[in-house]
Design a protein around this nucleic acid. Sequence first.
DNA 1: GATACGTGGCA
DNA 2: TTGCCAAGTAT
Length: 373
Amino acid sequence: MIEWSDDKIHSFQITLLDWYDHNKRDLPWRQDHDPYHVWISEIMLQQTQVQTVIPYYERFMADFPTIEKLASADEGKLMKAWEGLGYYSRARNLQKAAKQLVDDYHGKWPKTSEALQQLAGIGPYTAGAIASIAFNQAVPAVDGNAFRVFSRLLEIDDEISQPHTRQLFEKIIGKIISKDRPGDFNQAVMDLGSSYMTAANPDSSHSPVKEFDQSFIDGIELNYPVKNKKPRPKAITYYGLVVRSSAGILMQKRPDTGILADFWTFPLVTETELLTFDGKDEFLTESDMMTALTRYFKHNYQLLLNIQPLPVKAVIHTFTHQKWTIHLLAAELSSKVNLSFFPGNWFSQQDFLDTAFPKVQQKMTERITSLDA
DNA sequence: GATACGTGGCA
DNA sequence: TTGCCAAGTAT
């Protein structure tokens, strides 16, 4: 790691901000510095690309234009607005924080990074972004761009996923950040990181700060940032049941913790769970599997099912840590049944239009729809 | 301090 | 198809 003199820091600030003034992206949330606008955009942009966020941001502002509207919003409507963006706890924390602001802060924003981090869903990065952009506080906003940009500029070899490394970057950037225009400085770093100093195909030779880029000068910019490899998603096989009645299709509410918390999906059973229930290591025939599934639902929910395979391809969906393969089966309820032991509801066509679903359920729904066509 | 938490794009 | 990336936070 190299260090910069005060003169070099000043020169870097001038160069970066001059480039930003002439080349900054025209984004919907950059029309003003309203903390509500900054906040919503920053939450949406977590682990999500700008082009994906733009239409969501526009719709969100039309639906929930103020903190008060967001705080009092119907949760189903809020989730519908977030549908497809992923990391859904972001949306739930958004409303939780809106209520905090209305109830505990009388609708007045705290203006320091430390105070902002007391709000649900706001961590060190987002707090720094809001404090600097909306309130002109000279604090760093260390996101993936900042890690990449400054690790390359200064050849910082620390592994960036280590929590301690964030503090190192905050300290370093805290010295380099423009004290006059901290918000523009932080945003300039982000624009730089998404243009000339990208992860895969950087264009370092045309970068406005190439003369400050030690790793480029040394021809080793792709060595930065230093990052650990992630484990591959764990493969999980599911059986998904399509149960129809005159009232609609049977949907099951997921647990309120874990992946896709509180979302509605077709009833799902993991192959592992079913094998354990059946006392087997594997199913030798499809018939054995369906027999076990029938017993499983009868035993756990008092549901009597007549199951048969559906002529559709398995649904494959990959999350960050799990890869699901879902085999779909048709199931008829035999005669009159009591659903009181089953955590589910019959969904009408209108329900399917009104409810927010995760992408993996949308894929399953498409399979069924293609059968009808 | 590892791990969980969604989705889409790209090579 | 697989791996990795894209403006992180919570536990």
